[in-house]
Design a protein around this nucleic acid. Structure first.
Lengths: 103, 103
DNA sequence: CTATAATATGAGCATATGCTCATATTATAA
DNA sequence: TTATAATATGAGCATATGCTCATATTATAG
């Protein structure tokens, strides 16, 4: 495939996706949700972070449609909504596990 | 695979990789180099950006070993050095092309 | 050796990011 | 209805990020 300049909208879109995956807290949240649907407090407890921090990040991830939520009583359960992006993350986690330490 | 908390070093490493891919200028540089080895000025001209900006970003990318360079006379030619990360990017570019506009 | 071309680098600035604290909102249980 | 649990939200702050300008560095051509 020959080189073609990337259009602005496309680049912004890609940038946005990677930016979402570039923060340690969001990486941890997504990785956790990949294995188990969780309420906000469950996530905060598991990751030992403040409820507010988690809530803000979930809002960020939800607005990008990377996660979704459902309500049960007065709790919100969050889960993965974008499996393509999730695949990127898990793929990179696996790769990193094999790579780390090697030079 | 069951859930396992991600170790700090691993998360930092992954975060760093995605951070590198999260900036529009770096995305454009990498995509260009993926198709063609280029000098600093060639990149600056192609992307219509300042030489200084490109040089700074190349230093950033080189330090992460995503690109490498060779010298020819008094020019430096840069090229891709990490094809796994490059694969992540191209994969996402392709996916975005099909996705954009759709909701 | 000197002028010039190509690249690198440092400081400064504006904006973005992520967290915390305090508080608001919403729904349930009593 | 009221107290409480769960979540959401806004303001403020410290740090990170990316660009530009000016200048330094390095190598080549003459």
């Amino acid at each position: 495939m020959a080189y073609l300049p990337l259009e602005n909208e496309l680049v912004e879109n890609i940038s946005q996706t990677f930016k979402a995956l570039s923060d340690p807290t969001r990486i941890r949240i997504l990785h956790l949700l990949f294995h188990k649907e969780c309420s906000v407090n469950e996530i905060a407890n598991e990751l030992e972070m403040q409820q507010s921090t988690i809530s803000h990040q979930l809002k960020y991830l939800k607005q990008l449609r990377l996660v979704k939520n459902r309500r049960d009583k007065n709790m919100y359960f969050y889960s993965i909504d974008d499996y393509h992006v999730m695949n990127l993350l898990e793929q990179t986690i696996d790769h990193s596990k094999h790579t780390i330490g090697g030079l």
